[in-house]
Simulated scan of single mutants.
Amino acid sequence: MTLNKTLIFSLFLTFIAIFVSCEDDSASSSSLRDFVGVEEAKNVGIVLGETVVVESKIYASESVSIDRTFDLIVDPSSTHAQADFVVPASVTIPAGSKEGVFQVSLTGNNIDNEGNLLVLSLSELSGVNQSSTGTNPVVSKPKKKIVYNISEVCQTGLTKVQLSIKFDNFPEETAWELYDSSFNVVASGGFTGTTITGYAALGFADQDTFISNFCLAPGTYTFVIYDDYGDGMYTNATISGNYSLKFLDGTVLASGGGDFGAFEDTEFTIQ
């Protein structure tokens, strides 16, 4: 009797092991069939006012016998204005394929100096796959999001530069102008007409930082920064403002800060 009981118990354990193994294989296969991935984040540079069309793809780890169509949902974390993009309602992975393709239209308006984001999510999908082994459910639950990093780029022949101004405790006193070689004003800030009104009226607080990007043609320029009170960007020994005008690679074209009096000017050349 003892031998029979031992044999029966051993057969029972073998049955359980086979059953669990089959369950694991089924779960693994289901998990593989469920997986849908997306491309890496795309960096999209757009000339101001122009529109570009970006092709994007999603990928399934397995092909199935049915079309798999996912809704494309604009994620709340997006910062690119809704009027400046067109996203299709859905994307389909055709039956027998592992890849779905769609196109997004992006327009270069209202792009922040730090760049904008368009983030898309994919809806979940339920369906039925007819295969040689029978009918199997298909439940796809995409986890990753499709991200577009949108930045403004310059037209061919122009160079992008960035102006950064960190104010002292009197942003209302700061203004600036950029002149070309013929002393035409190319860009400016902190003025109302010819009067310095500074940056407090524009919503900047003490010690805030203002950043602006613009595109310049080859030539010689003069950057001038003004202080309406006449003591530069200086509040006291521990609080002082500063500014810099740079290429995007970090090369400095003009910089300064502290007590420079009523104004400070720097000439530079772009090749």
Rank of each mutant, 00 (worst) to 15 (best):
G96C: 12
S132R: 09
F260H: 09
F35H: 12
L253D: 08
A89N: 12
V252G: 10
T266R: 15
K42E: 09
L158I: 02
G157D: 14
I270T: 06
F70S: 10
S31N: 14
A200Q: 12
F15V: 02
S212W: 02
Q82D: 08
N213K: 08
I16S: 04
V139M: 04
E40P: 05
S131K: 08
V52Q: 01
N43F: 13
E39N: 14
V74S: 05
A95P: 14
K143H: 11
A60V: 07
Y234S: 13
S131N: 10
T69L: 11
A237T: 15
S126W: 08
L202D: 01
T51L: 09
T192L: 08
V186D: 01
K143E: 15
N184Y: 00
I18Q: 05
I111V: 06
F191T: 11
D249Q: 15
F70K: 10
K5R: 08
S56D: 13
L7M: 10
L122Y: 02
I165A: 12
G250Q: 14
D259V: 13
S56L: 09
D208C: 04
F35C: 06
Q130M: 14
T79W: 07
T269V: 13
N129H: 07
S123L: 02
L202Y: 07
I225M: 11
K166W: 01
F19C: 00
N4L: 13
L216T: 05
S78W: 11
T174F: 10
T238K: 12
D71K: 11
D67T: 08
M233D: 11
Q155T: 08
G261S: 06
A83G: 05
D34M: 06
D228N: 15
I73W: 12
S78E: 15
D231R: 13
F170H: 03
V153F: 09
D206C: 03
S123C: 02
L216C: 02
I66T: 15
S90M: 01
I165P: 08
L163T: 02
I150Y: 02
Y59D: 00
D206A: 10
P218C: 11
I46P: 12
G115C: 07
N184L: 06
A217T: 04
D75R: 13
L178G: 09
L158A: 12
T51E: 13
V47W: 06
V54N: 08
L106H: 04
T238M: 10
R68D: 06
V53C: 00
T174H: 05
D231W: 07
A81V: 09
V104T: 14
L72Y: 05
L72P: 06
F170I: 07
D24V: 00
D168A: 06
N149C: 01
G127D: 12
Y226W: 05
E50N: 15
G134I: 07
V54Q: 14
